[in-house]
Design a protein around this nucleic acid. Structure first.
Lengths: 115, 115
DNA sequence: CGCCGTTATATTCCGTGGTATATAACGTGG
DNA sequence: CCACGTTATATACCACGGAATATAACGGCG
């Protein structure tokens, strides 16, 4: 997964950024691990922050992105909803489409940066 | 100038973001006003921060973006170099090209956000 | 010459975002 | 039944970024 494109894309809602690199990765990690806390650990992020981001996601979109259930040891955990999967996929698609659209310009721009 | 596209684009250097919405606007304001401090005032930003951003810009690119001269009352001030103008123009071009490239997807994405 | 508005820099202060920690309630598995 | 690993929440701490302030050196302009 070559996920370094030399740029970051953030989609802005009315108030703040609704989706960006951080939230997208967090949701993907939750999908992988089935748990907010495991995803947070994997990203070196505090559980509190991860939970706040999930809260923001669920609040900012028309439908929940992540659904949760209390209880551990495979009792509870977190799941990414089908809607959530579509939103992250849509974000990733926009990210790479934008990246492809300006790839040539970006390469030229990069050449002017000090290495 | 309709400069709200529902997204932000940041171009990443090796260490941090080399160019983004904030630095781009700052350089444009410096070009307009001929002064770092006037640009900072116009953006509601402290002079120190504006100066630090200019320093970062001049350091991160192969050539200076902003050239400065000490002394006030039209004695000193700041100017955007031709190179700096090209870099900001290139950034703005990438910004709008990326925006146009994903306009349709972005509109669909936005429709899923709570208003 | 003196004033004004710069750049440049240091220092202090403060708000805020995030971490760390603790606790509660809970569900599944051993 | 008990331990474990969750979600959810509160609290306290802390590091960092940025603002505010002060100062110095400087260069035009009146």
């Amino acid at each position: 997964m070559s996920r370094y494109k030399g740029l970051t894309l953030r989609v802005l809602g009315k108030r703040a950024a609704a989706m960006g690199p951080g939230k997208a990765e967090l949701v993907e990690r939750i999908a992988e691990t089935g748990s907010i806390s495991a995803a947070a650990r994997a990203m070196g992020m505090s559980y509190r922050r991860a939970w706040q981001l999930v809260e923001a996601l669920n609040h900012d979109f028309r439908e929940p992105i992540v659904s949760t259930a209390i209880g551990g040891q495979r009792g509870g955990g977190a799941q990414v909803t089908p809607f959530g999967r579509r939103m992250v996929a849509a974000y990733r698609a926009m990210e790479s489409k934008a990246s492809r659209a300006i790839a040539a310009e970006l390469r030229r721009f990069d050449r002017e940066l000090r290495r």
